[in-house]
C-alpha cells in the first residue's frame, strides 16, 4: 500500500491511496482511506474534515461504489501516476491486516 500520511481522526491509521472500482480506466478515481478507522478524503488535502462512509459497504463519496468490495483495491504505482498523486506518497508498507494474509 502506498501511503500519504497518518490519520488525525484515530491517531493510528495509515492513509493509503485506494482505488474505487465504480468506474474503469481513465475515469477510475482514487481516494485517501484510513486503514484503521475508514475515514475517507476525496483529495490529498487531509487537513480537511474527512467523510465517514456508512458501514459495512463504505460507499465511495464520489460515486457510491463500495470501497471495500468487488474490485476496490490499494492503488498501484501506475494508478497513482494516472491520478497524478505520486508527489504526495511518503512510503509503501503493509496496510492493517494485510501482513497477516
Amino acid at each position: 500500500m502506498f501511503y500519504v500520511g497518518f490519520c488525525a481522526v484515530c491517531g493510528e491509521g495509515t492513509l493509503g491511496i485506494r482505488m474505487c472500482a465504480g468506474q474503469k480506466g481513465e475515469r477510475q478515481h482514487g481516494v485517501v482511506l484510513c486503514d484503521e478507522c475508514d475515514a475517507v478524503w476525496t483529495t490529498l488535502d487531509t487537513s480537511q474534515a474527512p467523510v465517514f462512509p456508512e458501514q459495512p459497504d463504505l460507499p465511495c463519496p464520489i460515486c457510491s461504489a463500495s470501497l471495500v468490495r468487488h474490485a476496490a483495491h490499494w492503488a498501484t504505482a501506475e494508478e497513482i501516476d494516472r491520478l497524478q498523486w505520486r508527489h504526495a506518497v511518503i512510503g509503501e508498507g503493509w496496510a492493517l491486516g494485510d501482513e497477516l494474509d
Binding site: E12, T14, Q55, P56, V68, W94, L96, E99, L100
Partner: peptide, 28 residues
C-alpha cells in the same frame, strides 16, 4: 457489526491482538 475491509468490526479490532511489524507508524 459487519464492516471494514476485513468484513466485520470484531475481526478488525482483533487484528490488534498481534503485532504487525511491517505496518507503517504504530500498531497497538
Amino acid at each position: 457489526s459487519p464492516g471494514s475491509r476485513e468484513g466485520h468490526r470484531l475481526k478488525h479490532v482483533l487484528l490488534h491482538t498481534k503485532d504487525q511489524p511491517g505496518r507503517p507508524g504504530s500498531h497497538g
